[in-house]
Design a protein around this nucleic acid. Structure first.
Length: 594
RNA sequence: GCGCCAAUAGCUCAGCUGGAUAGAGCAACGGUUUUCUAAACCGUCGGUCUCAGGUUCGAAUCCUGAUUGGCGUACCA
């Protein structure tokens, strides 16, 4: 692959410093950035670091280097130095050639396979309640990061570790047994996960009531929480589950089945999928052989009560329990075992856990332990920690019913999309099924973009009273730009096969658009390295915005010159393709009309 | 107490490994359509980048300390 203009500029700037000032300029001293709009040129070399070697003013140095570069690089047409910034103008021939040889290419922005395998574990729901807005963020992040890494050349495995057992599941089961009267999704008309969630909430109500009663009779809060009859019953149910009690297992299977049906619907609407499911009911006993291994290696130690610990105080952390005195697992025991299992199954080079930032400490400890155990794959583990989605009233809590339900929110988004679109009269004459599909694309696009445009680690505020926007820096804005381009292409009779003719001279908005489009691969790369879909989201917005500017400034179909018309159609088509490609990395569909 | 994370316009957010006068959107106000989709475009208004020091030719960005907020520090998951 030919070297980029940035690489050439770096090289020749070094040469210039060597020839003119007789000094070696280290690579990290060379900064090349895009020229700010208010100045002439497209690329800028920052000359301050060079003045150390030139012993001249920034302006004089810039002029020296600029003159040298102008002689060496035929792509350059002019330069100017302002306050220590050497602004370079590249010829229109350079930009059009960049466009036809690279940007226009079908696979522009997709990297060749790099031979590395990577797992993204995300979603990982509990099967005792429906998904809420926080889960949507998790799912979209996981799906998008997986797509971005695949585009960057990884072989990606999407995994979902389902938390399908434990005391929280037994709570729903017990409440259903007690108050359900045999209610099923079929008899109630409720989506399975919502039905099960209803009983989880009922359990909690009863539990709270019992706690209050006990406290009224003089128990301490801690004691009341342990002694409440209903929680004891749930614990007994968990023991029966672990003992393989047929009745409990049957109920567990039935109710989990309802939940899975519900989740499948929600996942389908979200457009996320998985290559591999792990179930905690299969993995919760794993990890004990690793405990043994750690004891033998002297990484772990046993306390008199028979519990097993690791001392991480030397690493600035605490002592951490890894196995209970009675020999049963804790959370981290399972996670050690599951990490080993996943590696044994796939042998991946890297493994990303998409989990909320409340578990930062847990993963820090987990990764450190695996490293101390000498697992060669431990250094490939990464916790993609994201911020919680908060409501104005604070954190969402399923037990207390203060959540924004995933299904409700999606319904609302699609309904709003329908309303907005019909107000604008955009879909008159369209058959109903097509309308419905379009509203789904727009509503989901608004929601997904809203969640993905924000840097993952930042927490997100969602105000249910303020609807998610459809104008400005939003998904629908980008979708609209795509639809608008498709409309122009259709009217212009454009086909991809048409040979491209390039004009001699570009307008500023054409040049800016080409330059922006040419940044697509670098954006994908940055997003992949930082595991941040936000880069791609914001890039898509920039492209749409720049295209709209171009669209308003120039006429396409009625361009005076046939070559210009042809070129602008190709430029539009390429813009649409890159928008569609970038949005696909976010799991956002783009319509051909809206 | 200790640890991790965040703090940028009234609100929601960008700002890449330090680089020019800190940028978008929303909200408010004004303008643009007999011409390719006005979910658009252009303009006005809006900032002591939480504070105080430090490093540097240069700091929203790096370092130290404080303040505020979130999370964690469970033999819960």
């Amino acid at each position: 692959m030919a070297s980029t203009i940035q690489q050439q500029l770096t090289y020749h700037t070094k040469q210039a410093v060597k020839e003119i000032y007789g000094a070696d300029l280290p690579d990290n001293q060379i900064t090349i950035q895009e020229t700010r709009k208010e100045f002439d040129g497209q690329l800028t070399v920052v000359v301050f670091p060079i003045t150390r070697f030139s012993r001249k003013s920034p302006e004089a140095t810039g002029n020296d280097i600029g003159a040298y570069l102008l002689r060496q690089l035929p792509e350059l047409t002019a330069f100017n130095t302002i306050k220590g910034f050497l602004n370079l103008s590249l010829s229109d021939a350079y930009w059009t050639s960049l466009f036809t040889t690279a940007v226009m290419h079908e696979k522009f922005g997709r990297f060749p396979a790099n031979g590395h395998k990577l797992m993204v574990e995300y979603s990982s729901p509990n099967t005792n309640k429906p998904l809420h807005l926080g889960h949507i963020r998790n799912n979209l992040l996981g799906y998008s990061v997986a797509s971005i890494l695949a585009a960057y050349g990884y072989e990606v495995i999407k995994a979902n570790l389902v938390n399908d057992r434990g005391i929280h599941i037994c709570k729903s089961m017990l409440a259903w047994q007690r108050w359900g009267n045999g209610e099923t999704p079929g008899t109630s008309g409720m989506k399975g996960d919502h039905l099960v969630g209803k009983y989880y909430v009922l359990f909690d109500k009863e539990y709270k009531k019992e706690i209050d009663e006990l406290r009224a009779h003089g128990h301490t809060e801690d004691d009341a929480k342990k002694q409440a009859p209903i929680i004891r019953e749930a614990q007994q149910m968990l023991q029966r589950w672990e003992a393989g009690d047929e009745e409990v297992i049957a109920l567990w299977k039935t109710m989990n089945g309802w939940v899975y049906d519900g989740f499948a619907q929600t996942y389908g609407r979200l457009g996320v999928d998985f290559d591999k499911y792990y179930y905690e009911s299969d993995t919760y006993l794993l990890g004990k052989d690793i405990i043994q291994e750690g004891l033998e290696k002297g990484v772990f130690f046993r306390k008199p009560d028979n519990s097993v610990w690791i001392d991480l105080t030397a690493d600035g952390l605490d002592e951490k329990l890894v196995l209970r005195g009675d020999g049963t697992s804790v959370y981290i025991t399972q996670d050690m075992g599951t990490a080993q299992l996943k590696y044994d199954d796939f042998g991946m080079d890297e493994s990303i856990y998409v989990v909320g930032n409340e578990q930062d400490y847990h993963f820090k400890v987990l990764f450190l332990i695996l490293e101390k155990l000498g697992k060669p794959w431990a250094k490939g583990l990464f916790h993609l920690s994201y911020g919680m989605v908060d409501l104005p009233s604070g954190k969402m809590k399923s037990r207390e019913g203060t959540v924004v339900d995933a299904d409700d929110l999606m319904d609302e988004m699609v309904t709003t999309a329908r309303k907005r679109t019909e107000e604008l009269g955009k879909t008159e004459g369209l058959p109903e099924p097509e309308k419905a599909a379009l509203y789904d694309i727009i509503g989901m696009g608004a929601l997904k973009y809203f969640l993905l445009k924000v840097e993952p680690k930042k927490r997100l505020l969602f105000d249910p009273n303020e609807s998610i926007d459809f104008q400005g820096h939003t998904g629908p804005f980008i979708q609209y730009t795509h639809a608008r381009i498709q409309s122009v292409l259709t009217k212009g009779g454009y086909t991809q096969q048409q040979a491209i003719v390039v004009p001699e001279v570009l307008t500023e908005s054409e040049r800016d658009l080409i330059q922006l489009l040419s940044n697509y691969p670098a954006t994908v790369e940055a997003a992949a390295k930082e595991f941040s879909p936000a880069y791609v989201a914001n890039y898509g917005y920039e492209v749409a915005k720049q295209y709209n500017k171009f669209y308003h400034e120039e006429t396409i179909l009625k361009a005076s010159d046939e070559a210009v018309r042809n070129f602008r159609l190709h430029l539009s088509a390429t813009t649409a393709r890159i928008i569609a490609s970038a949005m696909a990395l976010l799991g956002i569909a783009v319509p051909d009309r809206m």
